[in-house]
Design a protein around this nucleic acid. Structure first.
Lengths: 209, 209
DNA sequence: GGTCACCGACCGACCGCCCGGTATGTTGGC
DNA sequence: GCCAACATACCGGGCGGTCGGTCGGTGACC
């Protein structure tokens, strides 16, 4: 054993490196197509480190998403609990969602592609958290309907699912090298969401807050 | 070898049985999580039959989708080439899409979940066909924009991708045991698409055709 | 303030299963 | 009799996961 090949990576960084490498690989190759060997190689650690921090490959996947989801839920909660009419709060929430997606596009891609593979106890926990987010959003829509700002003839659940579906799928076609930034796309999608393809420039600018 | 365990399945049905079993399993478990053994077991055939008709597991996956996509494209072509204003044709196309999805929800689920896994030559071929479909749809949107029926401030590509994304994702949340039929949901989503959440009951009924 | 027991963090060789795919045999219809 | 249409037995590899061990820090105790 020579001296030079000893200190690979500073101690205490392994977990973060594993999560970062796994997120990147999962997003690019897909969860199932990524092997644990690729992950530890990219993270410059070993299998021992991986299974020291995570009990299974699946737990690694779910923890990536739970972290993202927890942050999104917290943000939505704050915005939903604020003052002001429901439609304005919804507009803020959606804009905030897009802004946040700028920084976390990768884990969202991972989840959009691999959520259906998670089963058992992990699935139940994550699904519960996901439902919580969905409900927060849906409640805002319902509030807007009761206040007369949104159409009442389409159920809030349909509205919510339709919109969130199109958001989750953005990674499939949006390229950051394209003519639009993710935030610009966000504003356009909000406008489509609110007024549809027939709507003219009805959507007002967000009031400062 | 006894006589009775010989004729398992009538000849000439193997391919169809394999496709049906694979579609069901892929939709329920995901492509990667489904093994070729599960497929042949469910189809009541053997590995020999599978690899007689398909050169690989991946070709089986792509052929499922290409079959569906070819049919959808043909339908869209017919509708798009018909007479009448672009917005009416688009409305017809979308309604037809939902009607057709009634019968083919499973293969669409398969593809929505597993398209990102297809690589190499298969990917190129399928992606080209997929682009053809997308372009047909997008051309209709652009026509509508030029005719003044649709808003010009959002690019047709954004409109197309946003809408098709939400359609592809329906399987994630829609349950046929729920209060809505898939066709009813379709009408609501078309209405949302055209007029947004703020729109009142602006969307007219489809003229008979 | 030395030392020693202990502990979490991490290493890396190893395992057994099971997966996609194949090579060869068999059969029924034309 | 010959060829598609299958059946059956089998393989090599790579996968997720394991397990005994190492190493650096930390604190209790004298």
């Amino acid at each position: 054993m020579t001296e030079q090949d000893r200190p690979r990576v500073p101690r205490g960084q392994a977990r973060d490196r594993i999560v970062a490498a796994a997120t990147d690989l999962f997003a690019r190759l897909g969860y199932e197509a990524t092997t644990t060997r690729q992950i530890v190689e990219a993270a410059q650690v070993t299998k021992g480190a991986l299974y020291h921090w995570f009990s299974s490959k699946e737990e690694l996947l779910t923890s990536i998403y739970r972290e993202l989801l927890a942050e999104q839920t917290a943000r939505l909660e704050t915005i939903a609990a604020a003052d002001g009419p429901a439609d304005v709060r919804l507009h803020r929430a959606v804009s905030d969602l897009f802004a946040h997606m700028d920084e976390h596009a990768e884990p969202l891609t991972v989840w959009a592609r691999s959520m259906h593979l998670v089963a058992g106890e992990h699935a139940a926990a994550v699904r519960a958290e996901r439902r919580r987010y969905q409900h927060l959003f849906q409640d805002l829509v319902e509030e807007g309907q009761k206040a007369g700002a949104f159409r009442p003839d389409v159920p809030a659940s349909v509205i919510t699912n339709t919109f969130l579906s199109s958001v989750v799928q953005i990674h499939r076609w949006f390229r950051s090298q394209g003519p639009l930034t993710r935030r610009e796309l966000g504003e356009q999608m909000v406008s489509l969401f609110l007024d549809g393809v027939r709507g003219t420039a009805l959507t007002p600018q967000l009031p400062e807050y």
